[in-house]
Design a binder for these strands. Sequence first.
DNA 1: GCTAGGCGACA
DNA 2: AATTGTCGCCTAGCC
Length: 544
Amino acid sequence: MPTRSATGNTLPLELVIEKLGPVLANASIKKIGQNVKYDLIVLKQVGVEVAGVYFDTMIASFVLNPIRRSHGMDALARELLDYDTIPISDLIGKGKSQITLDEVELQRVCEYAAEDADVTWRLYQVLSGQLAGSPFEELFFKTEMPLVEVLAEMEHNGVALDTDILAKMSNTMAQRMAELTRQIHHLAEHEFNIDSTKQLANVLFDEQGLPVIRKTKTGRSTDADTLETLARTTDSPIPPLVLEYRELAKLKGTYVDTLPEMICERTGRIHASFNQTGAVTGRLSSSAPNLQNVPVRTESGRQIRSAFVAGLKDHTLLVADYSQIELRVLAHFCQDDKLLEAFRTGLDIHAFVASQVNGVPMDEVTKEQRSRAKAVNFGIIYGQTAFGLSRALNISRSDAESFIAEYFLRYPRIRLFIDECIAKARRTGYAETILGRRRPIEELHSRNKQRVAFAERIAVNTVLQGSAADLIKKAMIAIHQAIRTGRLKSRMLLQVHDELVFETPKNRVKPDAEAIRGMMTTALPLGLPVVVDIATGPNWLESK
DNA sequence: GCTAGGCGACA
DNA sequence: AATTGTCGCCTAGCC
């Protein structure tokens, strides 16, 4: 049964369904136009390109458009289209050839959307039959599909930005960068482009005669690690200046000067895209702009968060984040008694592990011991080796080895879980999350040892990262439902993997916070406490 | 204009 | 070789 696409070309249904499997397994398909404004761009591209390059994307919109329709999202799409006239051409202009939409083209885009919705609605009905009773039923019908609407609403809500704060930061940073530039050029005894790693390497390693620490694929590394080593081990004054310059350049270029340009004229807010299949593990991704990597680690970076504000009168931002969620998921899967016990009694998990591994009481754990335990805890999630740990902690490899050995001695069931993840992936060809989301993993049978090791790390990490993603998606759907029924007065603005940001009426903070906490902690039954920390404040910095 | 590489922001 | 998953800025080099 061939299905007519938006462009009038034929697309065999069998092919569509064949394609859908990997989407559900969240394989290699990178782009799904699941958000309204992006969908329309995609349709425009499909109209221009036909089902070639943009094939995968088109499939995705086939699946997702009808859901929007069934939830009355078409009005939302029209509303967004209105103000997205300019961003559409902007976005296309970014990577593709420049296209400016005039009135006529805009009309055509709308027609494509309508026609596509008709076709995909029929397709969806067929797919429903295909998927009913399949292993993907819960994941597809109860999670990913309902989430489409949640994401559409989040994108529609947008987040308010205080541009005055950023403008002031920009000025301060520009001054400091000019001063750093002057100093660096003076020390190098000539001007050069500090942003160019190639030119910087020439200055540092050729002209200044500093030792090469590490090589990249094409040259000599000048990354932060390298510059820190140079700052520590040589008496050249240049590396620390470059480090400071780099930090400022990154913040200014990526956030401080760029975010204000992304403000929608009509709404006065930033409407990022939350991409539903942007990550192979089942996590969301965010783009245009990416609001999932807004700085928080360094003090100057953190300040950028103060520009994200509650944009409605008598509202506050409310931030709810899962505490140690991936470690809790690990505890859920491996059922290690000591780990479960630690979470059930609400202990500081890193300090607890440190006390176990070092054989000292909890209250005698040093900062050093705790931070090592923390690094190992994260390392487990990433499939770390002794070499990797030694580098991360700046300790000897043998120390790292003995620490890891001691760790697995204390937590044998974690070792068992890791081995089972790998064995299962080898047997079935995929890693599987708590909701049955699958990620195909091919390289476990490779003859290349390095690739096998990589595949093994993926096999473990995907289960943990993906299950945590499943959990928060479930929570988002529940919360969205409560918002729809009016039980909650908050609006969902952002998702940052283990964190949700809301805009909440000030007089509703208490009831909404408790309801949100309740839905986040019970989104899926893990068999151990799930802890959610909640904070409020006038901006994203002070809500912590 | 487009792409690859280096780098670095986040969980 | 050496810890998972993303997005995006900037440069350099090719067309």
